[in-house]
Simulated assay, not measured.
Amino acid sequence: MSCFLDFGISISSLDLQCTIAACLAFLYTYAMHILKYSLIFLLMLGLAFVSTQASARDGAKESAQEKAKENNDHVQMKDDALRTVFSNTVMVGEYRTYRDITKTFTYREFHTVDGTTDYKEGRKHEDGLWKIIGGDKICYKYPNSDYYTHTYCFFVYEFEGCYYKFTPSNMTLRGPRSWNSWSSRAVREGSGHSCAAAVG
């Protein structure tokens, strides 16, 4: 029996005469070569995957460490500490976004001990109420205002004498989604502190 083999390799004769056993032996040898190089390729692919996964884990670890450092730098105000910060205090602050109606970024709000506030934003002047809810949120409402018609609650974090307010929608179980997602920030009047760029 004769068989014709053309695998793109050099053979002494194009019309190779072979027995069934010789053909099978040749095919087996050729298949072993293919298997060997396939295994080498898969091994290299596996090593590349492991290396990529390790790099990703290292990156995630570094990111988590940076996040932890940021969390350690920002102190959440709670309970009596939160109440003490605002009670009998004028907060001089700014909003993250421009206030179209009042044409300003800035505000001032005096918090009395009895839970009332005197709020000024541009030409707006409102009488409000403030209270601590759940031990970790400060909430405001302005009963006589046509502009501020809801109850507004915030989580408060302090960093170098600046108090950052975050809405509940910008919070996670581990803290703010981003430290840049604050809605407003303020300092206590007369404290001498500022918020990155000075306010007030």
Score class of each variant (00 low, 15 high):
residue 35 L to K: 11
residue 20 I to L: 08
residue 44 M to C: 01
residue 88 N to Y: 02
residue 58 D to V: 11
residue 58 D to M: 09
residue 88 N to S: 13
residue 121 E to M: 03
residue 114 D to T: 12
residue 77 M to T: 10
residue 32 M to D: 12
residue 24 L to A: 13
residue 190 G to Q: 06
residue 42 L to H: 08
residue 62 E to G: 01
residue 57 R to Y: 06
residue 9 I to P: 07
residue 10 S to F: 10
residue 19 T to H: 06
residue 120 K to D: 09
residue 49 F to D: 09
residue 18 C to V: 12
residue 67 K to C: 03
residue 7 F to P: 15
residue 43 L to G: 03
residue 64 A to G: 06
residue 46 G to I: 08
residue 41 F to N: 02
residue 159 F to E: 10
residue 99 R to P: 00
residue 85 V to Y: 00
residue 160 E to T: 14
residue 8 G to S: 14
residue 19 T to A: 08
residue 134 G to F: 02
residue 36 K to R: 10
residue 167 T to Y: 12
residue 31 A to C: 11
residue 100 D to C: 00
residue 12 S to N: 15
residue 153 C to I: 08
residue 52 T to H: 10
residue 49 F to P: 00
residue 138 I to M: 05
residue 24 L to Q: 13
residue 120 K to N: 12
residue 86 F to C: 02
residue 169 S to G: 14
residue 108 R to D: 05
residue 153 C to W: 06
residue 124 K to V: 03
residue 104 T to D: 02
residue 197 A to C: 03
residue 200 G to E: 07
residue 95 Y to V: 04
residue 39 L to S: 02
residue 122 G to H: 06
residue 193 H to G: 00
residue 83 R to W: 01
residue 144 N to W: 11
residue 176 P to V: 09
residue 94 E to A: 13
residue 106 T to F: 02
residue 24 L to I: 11
residue 133 I to Y: 00
residue 188 R to L: 07
residue 149 T to F: 08
residue 196 A to W: 06
residue 101 I to L: 10
residue 32 M to E: 13
residue 55 S to C: 05
residue 100 D to K: 06
residue 6 D to H: 15
residue 75 V to Y: 06
residue 165 K to C: 15
residue 31 A to H: 12
residue 131 K to W: 04
residue 112 T to W: 01
residue 101 I to Y: 08
residue 3 C to V: 09
residue 199 V to D: 04
residue 79 D to M: 04
residue 193 H to L: 01
residue 163 Y to T: 04
residue 96 R to I: 03
residue 103 K to S: 01
residue 129 L to P: 01
residue 169 S to M: 14
residue 103 K to C: 00
residue 168 P to H: 12
residue 113 V to Q: 10
residue 147 Y to C: 03
residue 123 R to K: 11
residue 181 S to E: 13
residue 177 R to I: 15
residue 79 D to Y: 07
residue 49 F to G: 02
residue 113 V to T: 09
residue 53 Q to C: 08
residue 50 V to I: 10
residue 9 I to A: 15
residue 79 D to W: 04
residue 99 R to A: 07
residue 179 W to H: 11
residue 164 Y to M: 13
residue 163 Y to P: 02
residue 126 E to T: 01
residue 89 T to W: 00
residue 35 L to C: 07
residue 193 H to W: 02
residue 159 F to R: 14
residue 38 S to L: 02
residue 189 E to L: 11
residue 55 S to V: 05
residue 156 V to S: 14
residue 182 W to Y: 14
residue 60 A to S: 08
residue 193 H to F: 10
residue 41 F to T: 03
residue 88 N to K: 08
residue 115 G to W: 11
